[in-house]
Each structure stands twice: as C-alpha cells, then as structure tokens.
Design a protein around this nucleic acid. Structure first.
Length: 211
DNA sequence: CGCTTGATGTCCT
DNA sequence: GGACATCAAGCGA
C-alpha cells in the first residue's frame, strides 16, 4: 500500500464494528445487503458483496434453530451479537449466520448469496472447477465452500482485531433496489412459512431462487 | 446407544 | 421434478 500525499484522501476499507450489530435483526438484515464479506484464507482476501440474506428471530420462530430452546449447536445464537454461527447442514454443506440481538436472545441473519469480488480464482478452486461461475457464491452452502467457511469459524468475533472473517462498509443499497419474500427451504407453522424475512438485491444475478 | 433429520446442492431422467 | 449424498446434533430408550 502506498503512502498517501498530504491531504490526499484515502478510502481504506472500513471494518464494521460492534455498533453495527446492536440494531434489531430485521434492520441489520436489510443493512447487510451490499456490504462486503471478507475472508482471509491462507493470507489471501476472498470477498463478495452480500446480495441475499434471511432473518431468524427468537424461539417463537419455528424456522429458527432456537425454536426448541438452547442447545449445544444453537448456543452461538444466544450469545453476543456480531459473532458467527456456522453449522453443518445435510452432512456436507455449511451455512454462515451473523448473530444479532443482545446476549440471551436467540437471533441471527443467514447469508444466502454473494456477488464474488476478490480471490475469484481461489474460490473457483475451492468449489471445484467443473462448476459454473454463476454458482460460485449463489446459495448458503455454495458460498461457504467458495470462502472456505466451516465450523472452525463457528462462534468467532466479526469485530476482532486480527480475525479471519469480517464485514466491510459500503454505501447503502437504496430501498427501490431491495426485494423481500418469505424464507426459502424452511419448515414450521404458517407464520414461519410466510413472514417476509428474506431480503435480496433486486435484479442481481447473484441470488438464489427467483427474484 | 441407535434412530431421525435437516435454513442444500448436484446429478439424473 | 425427483433421488440422494453424508454427518453431527438432538432425542428417546
């Protein structure tokens, strides 16, 4: 990195800090759209722009892993906001969540899709070269594979000084670019199936399901 | 200890 | 549109 001249403006990427994660879950889910997720993997930056997320809020939300109360697996959801919750699904894929709400209240936002930005060749290698570029980070399981995210990154602090995973601030996505829908692939009562807690960037090719 | 089950993705027809 | 891979958590016995 070059040394800026006097008065020259430097736009260093700004890591999102604890105050970002103190908002309520739906607000955070909405604000996560457009932010950059950065993974430091073998000293290399792998990153993507968040294009699709889903909120899971409280024990009353039957689609939420915390709907059956506190367990060893979902414990991170009950912890402090700004931490990760990574779990294994279907025995072979991982899902990345960002924990929200104060200590003691279980909630999180699932990252469902990214637009690939940095380290694309490495991501392709991690995914397997036979897969099309379009599917690189489109879907919660795929993006974790592309960014080498597994349970070793479960329950880590996204605001840590020298972490392996964090978010970087970007200009907000305007409201007219944001779509909402029910969540994908969930089970539960009518509320769980219909509540519009999925947020996505409209018309982005980098989202799962349909726009 | 054995049985069930996913907040998914891939491949096949 | 449907089969299925693959495993740890969760739960009942």
């Amino acid at each position: 990195m070059s040394i800026p001249h006097k008065g020259e403006k430097v736009n260093l990427p700004t890591k999102l800090l604890a105050d970002f994660y103190t908002n309520d879950t739906l607000t955070i889910a909405r604000q996560l759209l457009g932010q950059h997720l950065v993974r430091l993997y073998q000293g290399q930056r792998l990153s993507g722009r968040i294009t699709e997320v889903e909120a899971y809020i409280g024990e009353e939300d039957q689609a939420c892993h915390a709907s059956c109360g506190l367990t060893a697996r979902n414990a991170p959801m009950y912890g402090r906001p700004g931490y990760t919750y990574v779990y294994l699904i279907y025995g072979m894929y991982h899902c990345l969540n960002i924990v929200t709400e104060p200590d003691g209240y279980p909630a999180a936002v699932l990252i469902r899709a990214l637009e690939p930005l940095e380290g694309i060749a490495q991501m392709q290698a991690l995914r397997g070269p036979q897969h099309p570029r379009r599917n690189l980070t489109r879907g919660p399981g795929r993006l974790c594979q592309a960014l080498a995210i597994d349970r070793t990154l479960n329950h880590i602090d996204l605001c840590a000084e020298e972490g392996l995973l964090w978010l970087e601030a970007t200009p907000p996505v305007p409201d007219n670019r944001v779509g909402r829908s029910p969540r994908i692939g969930v089970r539960g009562d009518t509320a769980a199936l219909t509540v519009p807690w999925r947020f996505y960037i409209r018309d982005s090719p980098w989202i799962s399901g349909k726009s």
